[in-house]
Write a protein that binds this DNA or RNA. Structure first.
Length: 586
RNA sequence: GCGCCCGUAGCUCAACCGGAUAGAGCAUCAGCCUUCUAAGCUGAGGGUUGCAGGUUCGAGUCCUGCCGGGCGCGCCA
């Protein structure tokens, strides 16, 4: 409906340009937007006010000229000037009822654009280090990323969902050592656990796993392990120095083979856990990208060489630096350390280049708000690589702050004090959690009241939407019990009977779905879809309460069934994109 | 100190390149189940969009300053 109007407007403007009314050039795309109130019709355009200066005419006069040149259309009832120069478009009834036909015809494809293979994007999200289970902070990124990816796909993008696995760095070493220490404890050794180690219960579980596999093969006397290590923070030392010495000690005692057992088992065990967790949350990835792979495949060297060739690297203090400050970052960045190892940032650069070389037009990154420093850094990297920085898009998801009994819940992975995504899912359910996470704009802080989510889960807005879907299903069940069938053809022939105010409002809402998808995709705003579904459910519930569907008159009955079937389809489509189930009954 | 994000109803939040009378839910108050699921519906009250300027036909939205909150500023990952 909107597209049709845009076409009409463009033709009118074209006429005016040809007649010399608007001056030489007119490349302005007509802006159409939904009106706030029905008195202003379905759509309004401010085009006359925008072009008034250029045309040298008062806005209202220009508006009249535009209206005069509008081609005839049976969908458009009339257009009128309002206020300072708005053009309000009042649609014909047939334009609204056609929507029902469209929806029943297209089914779960309604409102979704055909996939354009030339518009390929990669969306990277979650990418949490495999050092522990996902917590509720990761949940928001997961829900947001998954929903956004689905919405982009519905809007016609070809989407690849990626998870970057940091299976390489020092944090992983700390993890392996933490597991080894817990393993020694299980063997009966008494050791002091480092301040900087990972403390969660899951570390014990992995240690137990290793021990079940290989018994006491890697047991050493606790005293020998600790002997001569620099003091930990609690004893007046430096926790980083202490843990690094511990890592060296582990490599020394365990040897290459033994160290790998702890390292690999830890990473794999946690990764599998994360994968299962996300799958149960309805979040699927097309590609789990391994950081280690970057080094092994030569992609890392390749990217660094590209920077070098482009003249963006220099050497200082034995390290290799990227001249990021000349490309918009606040300071230069090390890519190869004095000790010869590449930095985490070097991997980021290589990964981005890899994405571009795989042919993506756009690489979308979804990061937690604490990563905002990455924006300038990665953009500099893109420029340094000679890639278009416009291909890089970083979306920051603000923190979800948990509240329990009115108190902020403190969280830290290292201390093992966090609420896991799994716990949240089990407590409030996947559907409610998915909805809560995306019902707010991603750039807003999210207050997640656990007690409220748990105790009052029946009042979650998600149930309101699902209930609308279930009610419609119930109507059709009742129809069957009455030994009646729904005849869509009769309904379609009777579309002009949909004249009740509640029906008009529902029709209007249904016609807005394609626009909601388009807006949500363009603004990277799944919450737009969440809000749309809420107001669609509102219109349905209002209709349900004011009119009977299963009436004797077969024209009215069937046309109303057509309408609510259309509503059911759109509700299910929208919920699907948000990763939420559409139950047949509740 | 420097940088990024945010500030809208009692609470949690919407408001699509700057558009018309700033909207929902929760909470509060008053109503609606002999008929398709009351996890529902109808109605009411509730606002100087943090403050002060500026830009223009028009500002919650853009610019400047201030106030308040969050986060970030490693040869960490």
């Amino acid at each position: 409906m909107k597209e049709h109007l845009e076409e009409l407007l463009s033709q009118s403007l074209l006429h005016l340009v040809r007649d010399g009314y608007l001056g030489s050039e007119c490349d302005i795309v007509p802006q159409l937007e939904r009106t706030r109130t029905p008195e202003h019709g379905e759509f309004a355009s401010n085009i006359a006010m925008v072009l008034a200066k250029r045309a040298g005419k008062p806005p209202r006069e220009l508006a009249q000229a535009i209206i005069d040149k509008l081609p005839n259309s049976r969908q458009l009832n009339y257009a009128e000037i309002a206020g300072p120069g708005f053009i309000n478009f009042h649609m014909d009834h047939v334009a609204l009822t056609t929507v029902v036909k469209d929806i029943l015809y297209h089914g779960d494809r309604y409102g979704h654009q055909p996939q354009n293979p030339d518009n390929e994007v990669t969306v990277e999200f979650v990418s949490a280090n495999p050092t522990g289970p996902l917590h509720v902070g990761h949940g928001r990124g997961a829900a947001y990323g998954a929903s956004l990816a689905n919405i982009l796909q519905a809007a016609g993008y070809k989407v690849q969902r990626e998870y970057y696995v940091n299976d390489h760095g020092r944090q992983m070493d700390i993890l392996a050592v933490s597991v080894w220490l817990r393993y020694l404890e299980l063997c009966g050794e008494k050791l002091r656990f480092p301040d900087n180690g990972y403390r969660g219960d899951y570390i014990y579980n992995i240690a137990r796993e290793v021990r079940n596999e290989i018994g006491d093969k890697w047991r050493f006397r606790g005293q020998d392990v600790l002997d001569g290590l620099p003091p930990d923070e609690a004893h007046g030392g430096d926790r980083e120095v202490h843990i690094d010495a511990f890592i060296d000690r582990a490599r020394e005692f365990l040897g290459q083979a033994g160290y790998e057992v702890f390292f690999e088992t830890s990473v794999n065990s946690i990764l599998v856990d994360i994968q299962q967790d996300l799958a149960a949350f309805g979040v699927k990835f097309d590609y789990w990208f391994s950081e280690k792979e970057l080094e092994d495949s030569g992609a890392l060297d390749h990217a660094i060489k590209r920077l070098e060739d482009n003249g963006h690297l220099y050497t200082k203090d034995g390290a290799s630096w990227f001249r990021a400050s000349e490309l918009g970052d606040e300071k230069d960045r090390v890519v190869i350390r004095e000790n010869g190892r590449t930095t985490y940032f070097a991997s980021d650069i290589a990964y981005f280049l890899n994405k571009m070389e795989r042919g993506f037009k756009k690489a979308i990154y979804i990061f937690g708000a604490d990563h905002h420093g990455y924006i300038a850094r990665l953009r500099a990297a893109a420029k340094g690589l000679g890639e278009d920085p416009e291909c890089l898009e970083i979306l920051l998801v603000q923190f979800a702050v948990l509240y329990r009994q009115g108190e902020k819940v403190a969280m830290s992975t290292r201390s093992g004090q966090f609420i896991t995504l799994r716990e949240l899912r089990e407590e409030v359910g996947s559907d409610a959690a998915r909805f809560f996470y995306v019902m707010r704009s991603h750039d807003q802080h999210l207050d997640f009241d656990l007690d409220l989510a748990k105790s009052q889960s029946n009042e979650n807005p998600v149930y309101y939407i699902q209930y609308a879907h279930a009610r419609i299903c119930s109507v059709f069940r009742n129809l069957e019990e009455m030994n009646e069938t729904h005849n869509e053809a009769i309904g379609e022939a009777a579309l002009d009977l949909l004249t009740e105010p509640n029906e008009i409002k529902l029709l209007r809402e249904l016609s807005r779905y394609p626009e909601a998808i388009e807006t949500a995709a363009r603004l990277r705003a799944p919450h737009q879809l969440a809000h749309y579904l809420q107001s669609l459910a509102t219109e349905f519930h209002a209709y349900y309460n004011s009119h009977q569907f299963l009436v004797d008159d077969e024209n009215i009955r069937n046309v109303r069934l057509n309408l609510i079937l259309a509503a059911k389809i759109v509700l299910a489509n929208g919920l699907e994109l948000l990763g939420i189930s559409a139950p047949e009954s509740m």
